[in-house]
Design a protein around this nucleic acid. Structure first.
Lengths: 204, 204
DNA sequence: AAATATACATACAATAATGCATGATAAGCA
DNA sequence: TGCTTATCATGCATTATTGTATGTATATTT
């Protein structure tokens, strides 16, 4: 082929990301060659190496594409005045489960990160990004738990730190298991029930 | 080298498994070549291919080695008369957390399965084994929850199925997150607290 | 309109990993 | 004791993949 319009090029880039998301999620990151990604996108490897320097850069762009709307969501929520800290926590958590269950893009990326890639050597920038993003969320929710304790919604012996570690473990574990054996339980329904149980346990 | 005693051969096999466990857990399964496993074990690839037909057979043997004692534990528990279903559940769960936290072999395997390998194509025998073993445990615990409901320890509206899905999600998620950022929270302490919270929530 | 840079396709070289075939030596067995 | 076979080491051929270099035709710029 030949040189296309800038818009065409952007579309190609987008197709490449879509294809990578799909193929990585199906066959795993390291078990997928650049040629397979290119084939799935209907182009050649030349197109990939033009847009991305290597496979890891491709994955980073993949994460960027999903991270942006999530960050927006976080900022948007942060601006809102918080009424009820506990309700806030539960709504956010349920919203997250819902997105994983319904947004195929988020779902595919979660699947890639949890089941279709290997975390190698500490320097791995992907892992660091992931952890950094997580940590921000954890801090947010920890602050909410602290607020709930301070305002007497939760008994004073509740440790916000432990509470948030448990909550994230629960959410991540539900998603992990749901993705592992796709749809052997309804994520949103069972997940919300389990989270509700956990939150009730904090009050006791 | 040469032909060794049968015992020597068994020792070599064991060394290979140890080395694989270590190297896979550090560098990931697909990012580790058979040559690297051999080097870590102090032998050549010839030794590996003599004992195992390929990398996947190696991993299967790895899982077998850990599965056996776990299965024994299950059977052993199953024989005991159950006094208190809820206590039983909590003890088993805590025991599991404890093993992951303290037994380096279990920990390495959990790390490999959760963070250092890619689950590819449905036929993957490793995944199937893992799921099958999980399912047995899930059924065990589900039966215990059912017993707890029947005996009035838990309110009747508690669904044993949802309860066990949530519990396993919580445990798996805690382990997953703990392994991801090794030791950024104390697994046993925080884990037991979170599980306790969850179990209390079921009673409410 | 000419020059240049862009957006890819294609071809090539280098690397690395796998599986197997072969070799060597001693253990196990008749 | 002699034969066979198990336990590994070594070497080889094949294959797959990566990164890059080159080619080409068209947007874009001047």
């Amino acid at each position: 082929m030949v040189r296309r319009t800038k818009e065409d090029a952007l579309a190609t880039r987008s197709q490449l990301l879509d294809a990578a998301e799909r193929v990585f999620s199906e066959r795993g990151v390291t078990h997928t060659s650049m040629a397979q990604v290119a084939e799935a996108a209907g182009v050649t490897r030349g197109a990939i190496y033009h847009h991305f320097s290597n496979k890891m850069a491709l994955i980073e762009s993949l994460m960027e594409r999903v991270r942006l709307p999530i960050d927006e969501m976080r900022e948007q929520i942060a601006q809102q005045p918080e009424f009820d800290a506990l309700v806030e926590i539960q709504e956010r958590t349920n919203e997250f489960l819902n997105r994983v269950a319904t947004d195929p893009r988020v779902q595919a990326l979660a699947n890639i990160l949890m089941h279709k890639c290997e975390y190698i050597d500490e320097v791995n920038p992907i892992k660091l990004r992931h952890l950094s993003g997580r940590n921000d969320c954890i801090c947010d929710v920890e602050a909410l738990f602290e607020k709930a304790v301070n305002e007497g919604q939760l008994p004073p012996q509740v440790s916000p730190r432990i509470a948030v570690i448990g909550l994230f473990g629960l959410v991540d574990g539900l998603i992990y298991n749901w993705l592992m054996d796709d749809g052997y339980f309804p994520l949103v329904e069972y997940g919300e029930a389990a989270i509700n149980t956990y939150m009730n346990g904090l009050k006791a």
